[in-house]
Design a protein around this nucleic acid. Structure first.
Lengths: 343, 343
DNA sequence: CAAAAAAATCCAAACGTTTGCACAAATTCT
DNA sequence: AGAATTTGTGCAAACGTTTGGATTTTTTTG
């Protein structure tokens, strides 16, 4: 690659298609077509153009190209927070699929804030992105703003979806997963199983609670709302809720989140419980720490990377259906009633 | 917000500045100035324009704006992988600072692949991004390609930096951190301290190794290259290296990474070690699992979120110096020689 | 060898903004 | 009242591409 001093110093002085055209004594349109591989340009000139472009260090201006073509190769992803392991994995999966298809990824985090979500949607619309992959913030209760802002921009929702919004959705098998987790606790012999239920503003948590309830009722256990703890999502709230659950006589908990489960472990270690013989726990979301901590947590693996891949593919293929990503029950120490945690 | 049917159905039929101008019987230039808050337009018309814009659901086309202005409000971030906790935290920090300053973030992951890095750099250049935040892939050995492709585009390097490249750099206090970690092991009474050194193609790892060596030599220990294990970065290679270290008679390890330390724990649990009395370990990178696993790992916290913030600020302020983010030694069970891990 | 067909290139407009300069209208100053 | 200034708008070009249709050049055909 030849490197021109002026190109190096001033970004504004980059070689354009017109520069190449002038250098070859032809018109910009031919250069454009040559570079695009249009069959209407002679092999000979195509080669000459490509050679000259290389020589002059030409790099296409995709901004201009996008403007003219009225479309961009950017996909926007809106998520609550990037550094949540679940979301960073989703992004990882989505990015690799999209990148292979020639798209790039613009990231916006809402930090669970409705206003930030609105702003992010507007920003992406203003960039005229090719599509949006969205997992809404916990403080958004309906998809009205999404439809209003996005209009016709293709939308794929994942994990946290608004049921009132049409279009592609990628969701975990929340109900089924929670059912399996709760059933596992029941089959392990636990007698009074509470739930850390999360926020009911999110469909995902509603479904998990439903699965928990179904498992109880299918096994002849009563559904007792007094041992269902809402709005638990972080370690501290999980801890507080678990303390109450212990007082209420629970011997196991199904947690809709991973961090709340961490708080639950804090609570029952504090209360002197020693192993899964005393207290059972299954958490949703197989964050990496769950398998490494002590006691290791039984979890539902949501396959976030695959979810990201599926979301990206749904966008690429223009799908509008709902795909359910299975949740895999991973049994570890925290629900293994037959053995103690600590050998 | 009034919602026009056509706007909703066809993305191409969005209201433009010209539409507003026509609706008000004025010219696009005035509308543009009005929306930009240019003082040369009358208060009255400014209000009329803003009202009409709102009414018609106008959203600016930033692609056109960027083209005309020759600059964009996008910052590109290139990282090896998004779903590494360290990097997702850096991105989280950078995104929040940049977002507040009106910038958006385009993410590219290289997956430690040189070609992908080159492609990412070109893509970002083609988007004429305002700047690039880069942590290079492990397979890139010099910054030549970066300079060649990026030209005058502002560059901030973080964590893994090319020393041969000018401009802003945000690095961890690698040498100092490794020194502190090793010194802590020495002071705790360990006698033969090996190192899981990582890749010497990366400046960060070179510096860590240097810090390790300095601590040894400052304490009268010999630096013994036969118990320094290179290219350890994932769990498996850490495990293999730790097995060798055990055979070589080591009673402690300083690990330049967190995942390799995980492998080291595997190795010495397998070999029947029971606590820090037997084997000491300090890892770099305070990934969340390190504090939750058993034994919990003593680590060096690199403050990735703050590093991301610093990188973003360095870009915003046009800095060209090198900033060092201190590493904090967090002492946990794995190096606490006075107490057993398991109570 | 002219006419028709095919191939290659050119022209000019468009994408939606922004902005220097010109111009007109309103205001202020001699 | 006329000149000088200020204030508000309009005009038109520009940013770097792409693309439909016109035009030229080359090739094929009768």
């Amino acid at each position: 690659m030849v490197f021109y001093a002026n190109v190096c110093i001033f970004a504004s002085e980059m070689t354009t298609i017109t520069d190449i055209a002038k250098a070859l004594g032809i018109t910009p349109s031919t250069v454009s077509r040559a570079l695009a591989g249009n069959p209407r340009v002679k092999e000979e000139t195509r080669l000459a153009v490509k050679k000259k472009a290389e020589e002059m260090g030409y790099e296409p201006n995709v901004v201009a190209s996008n403007l003219r073509k009225g479309q961009s190769r950017i996909v926007g992803i809106i998520i609550p927070r990037i550094h949540r392991e679940f979301f960073s994995n989703v992004i990882g999966g989505a990015e690799s699929v999209l990148n292979r298809a020639g798209y790039n990824v613009l990231i916006c985090q809402t930090l669970e804030n409705y206003e930030a979500e609105v702003k992010a949607l507007k920003t992406l619309k203003n960039y005229r992105v090719a599509g949006v992959l969205l997992s809404h913030s916990i403080s958004s209760t309906s998809g009205k703003h999404v439809k209003e802002i996005l209009g016709s921009t293709p939308l794929v929702q994942f994990d946290r979806v608004f049921p009132d919004l049409p279009g592609a959705k990628i969701v975990g098998a929340n109900c089924e997963g929670a059912y399996k987790a709760t059933m596992h606790l029941i089959e392990s012999g636990y007698k009074r199983i509470g739930a850390l239920a999360g926020y009911m503003t999110s469909q995902a948590y509603v479904e998990r609670l439903a699965g928990y309830r179904m498992a109880l009722e299918a096994s002849g256990f009563p559904y007792d709302n007094s041992i269902v703890y809402y709005n638990t999502i972080v370690r501290e709230t999980g801890y507080q809720a678990a303390l109450k659950a212990i007082e209420a006589g629970c011997d196991a908990l199904y947690s809709s989140g991973a961090f709340s489960a961490l708080g639950a472990v804090d609570a029952f270690l504090e209360k002197g419980f020693k192993g899964a013989n005393d207290f059972g726990l299954v958490a949703t979301s197989n964050e990496s720490f769950t398998g490494l901590m002590s006691p290791s947590l039984s979890t539902l693996n949501q396959h976030p990377f695959e979810m990201g891949e599926a979301a990206a593919r749904a966008f690429l293929e223009g799908r509008t259906d709902t795909q359910v990503i299975p949740m895999e029950l991973i049994i570890r120490q925290s629900s293994n009633k037959n053995n103690k945690w600590l050998k």
